[in-house]
């Protein structure tokens, strides 16, 4: 019997068979089926005729898609640096184990476990005109309240605020884990040199966690490119599509207008973007483990 353990045996693969079947049917097949759909004219009534790259051409010619792409890129460019900077700040501030810091870490991470619909509800109650928290507060202060969710520019900003609030916990935790790894002798050496705290941060702390900063940035790029629920619920992409992200475009084309082939083509574009980011993440994280060995 012990033979079967060390020697390569077909019977051993029975252990991976259950997962592998689910993986093949629900992930691998839909991945290729989606690519196939993107090359066909498909509607609610099933697959139709082959149109080659026609769907891709239609997507690229669609001003709504281009607007959604621009919105998403802007959103990523603003939300990711905010998340990285705030996460890093909180990690630096809470990088000591006391009762207060443990409590605060738990608090800052707690919003991450809420569902997107709760997060959006909370923030809609902050942003809604007239009755929202911001409206009430600005009225008390005698200021003219802004109609955040339906003013172009402000609507995407509001979605961003809700998103940063929701996603902040993960960057903070990853940075905290990285800060714990910095060897103490580096700090001792800096202490001998009488380096100022600011100098220690720039010369010791930040270089030591440079790879984590990179990794967190890529993870957040991947995550924020997939923005959907917050925008759909809070602003429904409005006004005039100024807060409609890519995923919401795919959702609307595929599941509201049932232009399935076109939606599949659009989702291949998004897949490509995310794949590039995931590759970058893989490269950065493997380099990291080589360095630590």
């Amino acid at each position: 019997m012990a033979e079967s353990y060390r020697r390569s045996q077909w019977s051993n693969s029975l252990f991976i068979l259950p997962y592998l079947s689910v993986f093949a049917v629900l992930l691998v097949f839909p991945l290729f089926w989606g690519a196939w759909l993107s090359l066909h004219k498909v509607d609610l009534f099933g697959p139709g005729r082959f149109v080659g790259l026609g769907n891709y051409a239609r997507v690229l010619a669609d001003p709504v898609f281009l607007q959604a792409l621009r919105n998403t890129v802007i959103f990523v460019l603003v939300s990711v640096p905010s998340l990285v900077a705030l996460g890093l700040f909180l990690a630096l501030a809470l990088n000591k184990t006391t009762r207060t810091t443990s409590f605060l870490r738990g608090l800052f991470f707690s919003s991450s476990v809420l569902s997107v619909t709760i997060v959006t509800l909370i923030w809609r109650f902050v942003f809604i005109p007239g009755d929202g928290l911001l409206a009430v507060v600005s009225e008390q202060l005698g200021m003219q309240p802004v109609n955040f969710l339906s003013t172009s520019g402000w609507s995407l900003f509001s979605v961003g605020v809700a998103t940063v609030w929701w996603c902040l916990g993960l960057p903070m935790m990853l940075f905290l884990a990285a800060l714990q790894q910095i060897p103490n002798d580096l700090y001792e050496a800096a202490a001998l040199d009488n380096a100022s705290p600011w100098r220690v941060l720039i010369r010791v702390t930040l270089p030591s966690i440079a790879r984590t900063i990179m990794l967190v940035t890529i993870i957040q790029i991947v995550m924020q490119f997939q923005l959907f629920g917050q925008a759909q619920i809070m602003t429904n992409g409005g006004p005039n599509g100024t807060s409609r992200p890519l995923v919401m475009y795919i959702y609307e084309v595929g599941f509201v207008r049932w232009d399935v082939g076109k939606a599949a083509a659009a989702s291949e574009f998004l897949f490509l973007i995310i794949l590039v980011a995931a590759m970058a993440q893989y490269i950065v994280s493997t380099r990291k483990s080589e360095a630590s060995e």
């Binding site: 992930l27 991945l31 989606g34 599949a264 989702s267 897949f271």
Partner: peptide, 12 residues
């Protein structure tokens, strides 16, 4: 499979 986002498979 880790790199495949939900959006790439959800329509199929």
């Amino acid at each position: 499979g880790l790199a495949v986002p939900e959006q790439a498979v959800i329509i199929a």
